[in-house]
Nucleic acid binder design. Sequence first.
DNA 1: CGTGGTTTTCAAAACATTCTGAAACCATGC
DNA 2: GCATGGTTTCAGAATGTTTTGAAAACCACG
Lengths: 188, 188
Amino acid sequence: MPNSARNSDRLAQARERFVQAWGQMAGAWGVSRTMAEAHALLYIVGDPMNTDEVMDRLQISRGNASMSLRALVDWGLVTRVHKRGDRKEYFLAEQDVWAMLRTIIRERKKRELDPLLVSLHETRDLTASGAGAAAGTDPLIKQHNARLDAMLEFATVLETLADQASSPGGVDLDDAARALAEANEERP
Amino acid sequence: MPNSARNSDRLAQARERFVQAWGQMAGAWGVSRTMAEAHALLYIVGDPMNTDEVMDRLQISRGNASMSLRALVDWGLVTRVHKRGDRKEYFLAEQDVWAMLRTIIRERKKRELDPLLVSLHETRDLTASGAGAAAGTDPLIKQHNARLDAMLEFATVLETLADQASSPGGVDLDDAARALAEANEERP
DNA sequence: CGTGGTTTTCAAAACATTCTGAAACCATGC
DNA sequence: GCATGGTTTCAGAATGTTTTGAAAACCACG
C-alpha cells in the first residue's frame, strides 16, 4: 500500500476523532451535538463543504444537516460560500479559534446573560424602597435586597467583561490570556 | 392588612421570581433546571433549609430534592449543616457570588475541558511526524496538524486561565474583572 | 413560466433527560 | 432489638429535545 493511501486513512481517522471530541463540548457551549460536530468537521477539514458532504460524513439526514448548518451560520461561526458552476451551497468554518471564542461569548451573552439581567432588575423592583411603606426598614427585606444586589452587580460585571471580550475594540483575549498565564508561571 | 403581611407577600414573590430567573441559567452552566432552582432558593433565602422545605417551595418530589441537593453539595455550591435538637439535615448555599463562580469554573473545567484536552492530544498523536513515513511531508497532513495545534494551544491557554481563576492563589476574579471593566469605560 | 436541482420546513418518531414515588436503607433513642 | 423519623435509591413515567423523511418552497436558468 502506497504512503499516500495510508496517510489519507490516518487523516480520515484523525478527523473523525476530532469531530467526536469537539462534539462532546456541545453541551459546554449550548448547542446540539450535531451542530458541534458539523462545526468541528468544517473546521478541521478547512475547505468549504456542501450539505451532502456533511450529511455523508456525519451520517445525518438532510433536514438535520440543513438545520444545523443554518444555526451555525446564524451564530456566525460558519459562512456560506458559493462556488462557480456549482448550484450547491458550501459552508466554511471560521479558522481563527480566538475569533470563534469571541463569537461564542457574544452569542451566549445575548441569549443568556442579557435576559437574566432583565429578570434580576424586575425582581429588584419588587422590593425597592419606594414599593411599600415599611419595605425600607424590614430587616428581612433588607437582607434579601443585599443578596439580590450582590447577584445583580455580579451579573453586571460579567456583562461588561463579556462585552469587552467580544467586541473588536476591547481587550485582545489571546494577549490577555497569555499575560495572565505567564504571570502565574512566575509565581507558582 | 398590616405592613408585615404585605412585606412578606412581596418577599415571597421576589424570591419566586429570582428562583425562576436563576433556573433559566441552568443550561448555561450545565446543571438541571431543578438543581439551579434549588441553588437559587437556598441562595436567596440565605438560611439553611431542609429537604421538606425545598420540596414544598419548589413543588418537587422527595427523590428529586434529594438528588438535586446532593449534586449541589458534590459541586461544592451548598454545604450540609446540622441543627441541634433536629434530626433533619439542612442545606446552606455559598453566599459569596465570586466564590460561586470559582467553584463553577473549577467543576466545568474538570468535567469538560480536561477530557477535551486528553482527546485532542490523542488525536494529535495519530498524525504525529513519527507515525508514518510520509506523514511529515504530506501537505494535507501538515495543514491538518496546523489546525489541530491551533485548537490544542487554544484549549491549553483556556485551561491555564481556568486554573488561575479557580485557584485561591491565582488572580482575584473580582479585582481583575473590575480593572478590565474600568479600563474599558475610559476608552468606550 | 416550467423545469430540475437544491434547500427548507415540520409533523411524527426516536432518543435523552429529568422526575416521581415507593421501597430499601440508615441512624438514633427507647 | 426494634420502632421512629429521616435519607437515598432506582425502575418506570413524564417530559423535553433532537432527528428523520417526505413534502413544500425556492430559485436559477433556459
